[in-house]
Design a protein around this nucleic acid. Structure first.
Lengths: 239, 239
DNA sequence: GCACATATGTGTGGTAACGCACATAACCTG
DNA sequence: CAGGTTATGTGCGTTACCACACATATGTGC
């Protein structure tokens, strides 16, 4: 959307956190960054596992998932081009407390945890941006928490689809209802019903694991205010 | 519990984050710290309001509350002697996104936001501890989120009472069921039922806004695993 | 000790979501 | 195109929690 400073590929799929860095600082980081492909289903960290790399998604999405048992999961945070997965490293914690699952295929910039720690000791722009992103993520997690507590599945599904769209940059993406139910922490049948309602209203179309958003404006109306709140926060923190 | 390094009052009501600082760094901070009394019901920050001071609770508790509307609240985080309220300041954000409500009367060490920013630029022990606390808080919020989604009111009430006890250091504290219902994001009648069940089992006793924990071990059994998970995290991060 | 405010209990009916079982439908593979 | 796999739909009984209304305590102040 906005003018992209550092990236030269020009597409919308550029990590905005890295892009917000001043040119010289970005250049210093560049040799430590490697573009990698993340594929739906990849698990970047398991709970308790050491974090070896952090990831700055370009057009991919990484879900942060908290697990209670084998059967009950809940997505507590979504990381796209506005942020970084592996934030714990920045906070001087070497192990992940959540599962990090690639929920949207695409590319990301990967950096070693050691490099992050070195950079974080510089008190430069990256340091400041990661601080501000930490706050943004905390706000996202908090808002999701309230949302999960009070809002109906329909609204939460709409919110979730919109958040995914914003990060992937496309209206169409592969997602089964089974998967969605795990993200939202509800039964598959619940998603089935909510999705059917959205499809009946021509807000979305789906078939066998492929979802297409048809009417974004209407979806935003269906979604709870949490979508707007989270979006405002994630968009604004980079300033 | 553990040996207290800096504080000289010796009681259990000492902010553990400050206490974990090396002596020289603590001494440097001391002139900027002021002991203040926090009284149940005090509002330290409202959403969107500027954060002028941060608070390191000694034996007080500060609840971080996310609001959806006038009627639906939810506590997303609890800050006691293991942490600091106003963490946003450390993350270079000047305004609070949540309401900060004193939920347990007691004292806290207060510091101006400006002083926090100055200190945070030093990359010293405070910097590191606040980083690690940030991670701890994020974990707490995430875990609460899953807990609120999946666990029954009974278990969540037990967890909440235990967390309060741990931070106040007493078995008896003033709390109406009305207030509890706001914290847990359920109806007062729901709390009433859950509390009655706990009282019937002699786990707690209560009357007109005063609650006494009678059997902590049994309460821990009633509470979900989330209590232990959060406790482990908040206790461990100081190392 | 009586009025009053506040805290807590209870009862009735409603609903969103659950768990389970099974039906249908779309795609894939040989 | 037959057969298997995976995705989605549907029905049924259950449950935790909701919303509202009201009853009953327990304290406080005159």
């Amino acid at each position: 959307m906005s003018f992209l400073k550092n990236s030269n590929n020009g597409g919308p799929g550029v990590n905005r956190l890295l892009d917000a860095l001043p040119k010289n600082e970005y250049k210093r980081l560049l040799p430590r960054l490697k573009t990698v492909s993340l594929v739906f289903g990849d698990v970047l960290y398991k709970p308790g596992e050491e974090i070896k790399y952090v990831y700055f998604p370009n057009d991919s999405i990484i879900s942060l998932i908290s697990e209670l048992s084998e059967t009950s999961w809940l997505e507590v945070g979504m990381v796209g081009n506005e942020g970084m997965a592996g934030l714990a490293v920045f906070m001087d914690v070497h192990f992940s407390s959540t599962r990090a699952l690639v929920q949207g295929s695409g590319t990301a910039m990967r950096m070693s945890s050691a490099a992050v720690r070195t950079e974080a000791n510089r008190l430069g722009s990256l340091h400041r941006l990661l601080h501000r992103y930490s706050h943004s993520l905390l706000t996202q997690v908090s808002q999701s928490s309230v949302c999960n507590r009070f809002h109906l599945v329909d609204a939460r599904l709409a919110r979730w689809l919109l958040m995914t769209r914003d990060r992937l940059g496309t209206e169409e993406f592969p997602l089964t209802q089974e998967f969605l139910s795990n993200m939202l922490g509800v039964r598959r049948e619940g998603v089935s019903k909510a999705a059917a309602a959205l499809q009946a209203g021509k807000l979305i179309r789906y078939s066998r694991g492929m979802i297409t958003l048809l009417n974004r404006r209407a979806l935003e109306a269906k979604a709870c205010r949490c979508y707007a709140i989270i979006k405002a926060e994630t968009d604004a923190y980079l300033n």
